[in-house]
Amino acid sequence: MQMPVIDMQGIWSQYREVVIHKDLSFQVQPGEVVSLVGGSGSGKTTLLREILGLLRPTRGSVRLFGTDLHDPDPIRQRDIRRRLGMLFQQGALFSALSVYDNIAFPLRELRFLDEDWIRELVLLKLAMVELEPKHAALMPAELSGGMIKRVALARALALEPELLLLDEPTAGLDPVRSQNFVQLIKELQRAIGFTVVLVTHDIDTIYGLGSDVAVLAEQRILIQGSLDQVVALDHPVIHQFFENHRNRSAA
């Protein structure tokens, strides 16, 4: 059996008196696409931040690619982080840098590639997210919402990570753009073969990506499986979340 990309065991997260996760376990196998869903305040973003290492769970272990995320060795920590890419909800582009420099930033940080090499890679990433070379000179403030997402995706993909994390990838996009963006992620996933974990509220995104679903409720992962398996489960949270979906299927 392959080593899971994400392996979280016995996670307890507590913020002051509020327990967010209670003995939660979560595993993602290589090449899987998993959507984390759940009501507001169910701890989806907290879980994502724990996978990224931005937050440390109160108790429990987080292993990425078989290595402990909180390894004391800074070099090993950095190496793990270089194998994952994150798309923040608002893009989190460096506002003082141009599109080109934003995408080149992680590549330059490696201190391994020469500028010509970086230029071709940046162009390649721009082409991957279907932006044109002329957009490279723009500043983040000059971009539309959809373009910000694309540039942020290009930056997240700059190092061709094995694991891509997406926080509400389609929030703030109109339906057509959001469909295109989902299609783009799906194609890239097929081409490069990375593992994807995303937080979303949008059933169409889950559908479009053809992803598995992990439902966060009652401070744990209620169920993790294909969309059909999850919808079949009889549970109030699932009824509430997938109601529209059922209605649509019925119609």
């Binding site: 141009s98 080109y100 230029r119 071709e120 940046v122 082409a127 070379p133 490279a136 000179a137 081409a191």
Partner: peptide, 18 residues
């Protein structure tokens, strides 16, 4: 080959860097 083709398909002109 598909991976290499993506590189081969890149437009030859450099991006406009401000």
């Amino acid at each position: 080959r598909a991976t290499l083709e993506r590189v081969a398909d890149l437009p030859p002109e450099p991006p406009a860097v401000r």
